[in-house]
Design a protein around this nucleic acid. Structure first.
Lengths: 229, 229, 229, 229
DNA sequence: TATGAATGAGCATTCATTCAT
DNA sequence: CATGAATGAATGCTCATTCAT
């Protein structure tokens, strides 16, 4: 039997619990505002045990942040291939759903709030978050340009435009106002408008594509009807 | 003469000094990380005096934040009227120069980082920052629509697009990476591209306007030549 | 009025209290064994106040040690001049009374016990304690040599012999056994014997001097009759 | 064969390792400054195992101290018999070499530093160290008195004088200044002078003996030529 | 028996806040 | 009114000691 020793197993499990607890506590109160007692309590163990896993508050913070970052790598789906409009729409919803999740927003606030104290954390997230995402979008956009469905010169700028048109406004708002989550309808409005502008600017057949977009948005304005208040 | 009593005068002056000191200290280390000793020292007075002006750390923080917000109200210039393209370009630079200033970014990080602890601060800034700005842009865009120079249905979305296309990418990067300020050339690239997309999507004479934009960007790619590395 | 400001006065007084408290606490339990709460309590103030006066435990320890050292500088009397035997006898008692005081022994134990952690403290005491004392004795012995009352080649060795003959045994015992203070009678025995050997070895008239010594020791075997148990 | 069971053997071995580790750790940082982790690590076993051998830090300390004391019993050689001067000289070097060894000094500092916390330790060492040593010297001195080579009344005082004249000064210095070991030459100076004084005071043929001493010290000023810097 | 893992209690240090002058 | 001085209440971190395996 290649049984993983129970000890080892246990240790890994506990480390995960600590990192989860740390995420919660640091997210709620920031680095300085958080205290190790809370983390220990939240993780269900004592402070000395906590210190056996991470040698200092700072080390715990960094470890947690980098762990979260690694977790984020696989978050974004690769675009499907059912036609530009459908693809972009699907991508827009996927991305919005992820980026506007309360926990993602809390994490983003934490990073931004502490980036002056921990500059390397900001950079680390830039690399796996925006940069990786962007390169995913860029690959897709390049493909569509080769198929003459889109036209542009600077792929990076086009990708950033896509992101900015769809999410800049709702995400900025969400960062500043944690208690007001955007509704599905609001999101739909941003996505609809953002994609329309993007298509007008970058599609080789803007009129057709915008028409298709309008049709799709009418049909399927949102995915989760329940919270469409 | 209804001379303001010297006492009164003095008090106001001192209060300003405290608020400036608070901005500096809180910006550098966040709310929890800052301590009242530093604020008092930075303001050049003793802690008890500081407490005479603000009854608690929390009160000082709120007061400082709201004061900064008020100061921000007059920050953005009203658009001039020399033609849409020139107007938008002038606005874009104005806005970029303001929003990407290191102190503005620090303040933004502070707000975002503390918004969960002080939700009203986030809302307050939303009102005078984005909202006021937006309504300024909206007024301008509405005017241009009346003159048939632009066309759109939803003014708010159009205004948000303008903002997002120009500044979403560089500002997001700047928030996450405090040590890497964007150069003038990078800014010019974002502005040029953002306005081109905006004009393509919203102008009644996209081809002409984009051509003019290209010409203007060539002529005057930046304002401060010295740091155009 | 050249009134010293009460504040200043107070501060000095309090600092003295802290140093006294520190001496007590550190002497009792050593550096690591002592805690700042005890010092604060013993000094009659709160821990933060204590920290306003000394920035760390280590700083307090060093300051206290150096203060004690300075206090020690004036401790040893200069020898009088009533004849070698009388002089040496007087010096012997003076010195024994000082060096064997319980607080002096505690301090010595503290220095010796912590000298590996704070090497500079050991050196500092060596300079003002033994070294200064020795040079005082040496001056005196040199004088007596000039008057042909004593003879020797190496003044330093002679001085060290004087010290060693009188105090080495009782002080070593006292260092190792804090609960057993030497009685006056025991001290008298050490002094009598030590001086006798010293005179035999160094006096130009050993027989006479030893006889005088014996007479003096008979007459006045001790000074403080009360604890002559 | 009444073979000792391997278990038993092992246990004894381990106990020795622990005691050696404890000596090292306690010597370096004192009782309070030392921690059980370091002892366990130094002994190459785990803390619980350590606790199986010694039920508490205090117990370990005491056991180690008493063990060291027992080890010390056989340290001092019995004086040979080649004539008083030669005997004393040989004894002086033997004793100096032992007492001034860095590990012996560290141990002495430890005892002195902790004697207030563990008074019985001080007494225990007094018994086997000074007391046993002293009674050895006393036996020898008594012998020489019987052979009319030395004369004195109080054997104990004579023995203490011998010790004090030779080692009081260098040992006291060494206790206070751990980083400055006395050189061979310095030791020779102390020994030469101490014995000369001793012989002048106690020999029945002082002139002869001092002459012999001078001759011996010239011939053989030290034993280990290499570090005679 | 030996050990990885755990913890209650303690300790140096800091900080928001308040007096006394 | 302004300030030097003071403090109760944390907070990060450590350590002697004990389980559970």
């Amino acid at each position: 039997m290649t049984a993983i020793p129970k000890r080892q197993q246990n240790r890994i499990e506990r480390e995960k619990r600590i990192l989860r607890a740390a995420l919660k506590v640091f997210s709620e109160t920031g680095y300085s505002g958080a205290n190790m007692d809370s983390v220990a309590f939240e993780a269900g163990l004592s402070k000395p045990t906590l210190y056996q896993y991470f040698e200092s508050k700072e080390a715990l913070f960094s470890a947690m942040m980098l762990d979260e970052r690694d977790r984020m790598i696989d978050v974004f789906q690769h675009p499907s291939h059912e036609g530009v409009v459908r693809d972009l729409l699907s991508f827009a919803w996927d991305y919005a759903d992820t980026v506007l999740r309360p926990d993602m927003l809390s994490l983003a606030r934490l990073i931004i709030g502490e980036v002056q104290r921990f500059p390397e954390i900001g950079r680390a997230y830039q690399e796996v978050g925006p940069d990786r995402l962007l390169s995913g979008i860029m690959t897709y956009l390049d493909g569509q340009r080769r198929h003459s469905r889109l036209e542009f010169e600077d792929t990076e700028l086009a990708a950033e435009d896509l992101w900015g048109l769809i999410l800049s406004a709702p995400r900025t708002k969400a960062l500043y106002m944690p208690d007001r989550q955007p509704t599905r309808a609001e999101l739909a409005r941003y996505i609809h408008n953002g994609l329309r502008v993007f298509l007008k600017a970058y599609s080789t057949q803007p009129a057709n594509d915008v028409a298709e977009l309008d049709r799709l948005m009418d049909t399927q304005p949102s995915r989760q009807v329940e919270d469409d208040d």
